[in-house]
Design a binder for these strands. Structure first.
Lengths: 172, 172
DNA sequence: GTCTATAGTCCGATAGAC
DNA sequence: GTCTATCGGACTATAGAC
């Protein structure tokens, strides 16, 4: 992150990163499959929080509500990271290949969330749709939170955006 | 596509592709910014169909219904491509970097759809949420259609999945 | 750790179309 | 005369094979 913030992502080579860590470039690629992944290594933590939150919901809770609880838990964690999360987001936004990887990670969160809903007894089709819609709302909420540093905390934004989602998707 | 199907994507070099087209590798990169993009060059056609479909909806139609009309129009086109669309999807599914690019293109469709909804007078926040949810449903429908070659045509699947989305996101 | 292939950029040169 | 398409060569970084 120091190198990326100081010189920019694309002008930082994998050799630079390895040198800063006191390692050889080859060893860098032993820890990370490619250059981008160093920025996404911790995303599995978010996945775990969301999945655990889904599993912790009472049995009679609707799929999107169970997911909402998991996303809320993930939002609490990200909100705690504060400026670090915003700095990381700025680096990712600066480069198309990083934005692509970010989308792939969100897709992984969708899959993990859907699986956790299926685990609760939800059928696969509605589980996948609830996961897609819920994570999309989470992504929208995160963007809104990042762009308003003086605004409300992320968990509140997530809850609000989920409510907006329900309103706009509501059957006529 | 011939080279990708015959030898696989990663064992086909940009030099191979250029040679098959009777061009130099350098000229390949004049037409496409990177190796993957050759598989996604036509995606703007889908964007146009969806955007035009949104614009063509009557003024009193709800955001997600307007988007549904656009997605339906796009689905008619893709359904017509039939086996070619399925072959292309198989190539993309075979490689992580291609799946990432596909997600990026879908993200572009979300942005274009949201802009078309705003053009209709919808506020930005609900426009973005409707676009995210609707395109997610479209993606789910496409996957279902690809995996069931003997199943119903894509436009029908899209309509069905959009209805499923409404049911699972419906306010309690 | 070494060695190598591939992707992708930069520079410049050429030639036909309008 | 400008625009667009082509090609060639040298170069770097990423990434994989061994």
């Amino acid at each position: 992150m120091e190198l990326f913030v100081e010189h920019g992502y694309e002008r930082t080579t994998t050799a630079d990163i390895a040198a800063r860590a006191g390692l050889s470039e080859r060893t860098y690629f032993r820890h990370f499959p490619d250059k981008r992944e160093v920025l996404f290594d911790a995303t599995h933590l978010l996945d775990s929080l969301v999945v655990d939150g889904i599993a912790a919901a009472p049995a009679d809770v609707a799929p999107l509500d169970a997911l909402g609880g998991g996303l809320h838990a993930g939002a609490v964690m990200l909100d705690g990271l504060g400026d670090h999360a915003r700095a990381r987001t700025a680096v990712i936004a600066s480069q198309a290949e990083l934005r692509e990887r970010e989308l792939a990670k969100m897709s992984g969160l969708v899959a993990a969330s859907a699986a956790a809903l299926v685990q609760r007894g939800v059928d696969e089709a509605p589980a996948l749709l609830a996961a897609e819609a819920g994570v999309a709302a989470f992504r929208v909420a995160f963007e809104r939170w990042v762009s308003t540093p003086a605004g409300p905390p992320l968990p509140d934004v997530v809850d609000a955006v989920l409510a907006e989602l329900r309103a706009v998707v509501a059957p006529a």
